[in-house]
Amino acid sequence: AIERGSKVKILRKESYWYGDVGTVASIDKSGIIYPVIVRFNKVNYNGFSGSAGGLNTNNFAEHELEVV
């Protein structure tokens, strides 16, 4: 089962992080479509409006993740 702290591989082909491994930061139990927040070591794009980097978290559905 996917739980907080799990290392997961991203299976969503259109994702910037496809094939990468991230760490589960949290799981939303409220029934939303993409409840699993995954944190990565790298950012997906340069930040804007003065922020240092881009996003390094993204929401995924459990079926888009594979525990490694």
Rank of each mutant, 00 (worst) to 15 (best):
L65H: 01
H63K: 06
S15D: 12
F48S: 15
A61H: 03
P35C: 14
V38Q: 00
V68N: 02
S6H: 09
V24R: 00
A52V: 12
N44G: 07
E66W: 06
R12Y: 03
R12I: 11
I33C: 14
G53E: 14
N56Q: 09
S26D: 13
G50Q: 08
L11M: 07
G19Y: 06
V38S: 00
Y45R: 14
N44Y: 15
R4L: 14
E14R: 04
I37F: 07
Y34N: 12
N46R: 01
Y18S: 03
N44K: 12
I2V: 09
S26Y: 11
Y45C: 15
K9N: 03
G5L: 03
G5P: 02
A52G: 13
P35A: 11
I2F: 06
Y18A: 03
N44L: 14
A61E: 05
Y34S: 08
E66H: 06
Y34F: 10
K13A: 09
G50V: 05
N41I: 11
D28E: 10
T57S: 09
K7P: 06
E3K: 10
N56D: 14
F60I: 03
I32F: 07
V43D: 15
K7Y: 11
L65S: 01
N41A: 11
N46P: 15
V38P: 02
N56M: 07
R4N: 10
V21Q: 03
A1E: 10
V68G: 01
G54R: 04
E64T: 01
S6W: 10
V43Q: 08
N59F: 08
F48I: 14
V36R: 00
G54L: 06
A61D: 04
T23A: 04
N58Q: 15
I2K: 01
E14F: 05
K13S: 09
S15M: 02
I32Y: 07
T23L: 09
L11T: 05
L55R: 07
E64S: 02
N44D: 15
Y18N: 02
I33S: 12
A1S: 08
N46S: 05
L11P: 03
G47V: 03
A52F: 12
R39Y: 10
S26L: 08
I32Q: 12
V38F: 00
V38G: 00
F48H: 14
Y18G: 00
F40D: 03
I37T: 14
N59C: 15
E62Y: 14
E14C: 15
I10Q: 02
G47T: 05
P35H: 09
N59Y: 08
E14D: 12
T23E: 12
V43P: 14
A52C: 15
N46E: 15
S51G: 13
I33N: 12
S26C: 15
L65R: 01
Y16N: 04
G31P: 06
F48Y: 08
N44P: 09
H63S: 12
S26V: 08
T57G: 07
K9E: 03
G53N: 11
K7N: 07
G22Q: 02
D20S: 09
R4P: 14
E66F: 07
N58P: 03
G47M: 03
G31F: 11
F48D: 15
S26T: 08
V43M: 08
G22C: 13
Y16S: 06
V36P: 00
Y16K: 04
V67R: 05
L65F: 03
F40I: 07
P35T: 12
S49R: 02
I27H: 02
V68K: 03
K29A: 10
N56P: 05
Y16W: 07
G22N: 01
D28L: 09
L65K: 01
F48T: 15
A61F: 07
S6N: 08
L11Y: 01
D20N: 09
V67W: 06
T57W: 15
G53M: 05
Y34L: 08
G47Y: 05
Y34P: 06
Y16G: 03
G47R: 01
S26F: 11
A61L: 06
I10S: 02
G5T: 02
Y16V: 07
H63R: 06
K29D: 12
E14Y: 04
V38R: 00
S6D: 10
H63N: 08
G31C: 15
S30A: 09
N46M: 07
Y45F: 13
R4H: 08
V24I: 05
V24N: 01
G53V: 10
S15K: 00
G54I: 09
A25K: 08
K9D: 03
S6C: 14
W17P: 00
H63L: 05
G19W: 07
K42G: 12
L65M: 03
G50F: 03
Y45V: 15
I33Y: 07
L11W: 03
K29R: 10
G47S: 08
A52S: 11
V24L: 01
G54H: 07
Y45T: 15
I10T: 01
W17T: 00
Y18K: 00
S26H: 13
L55I: 14
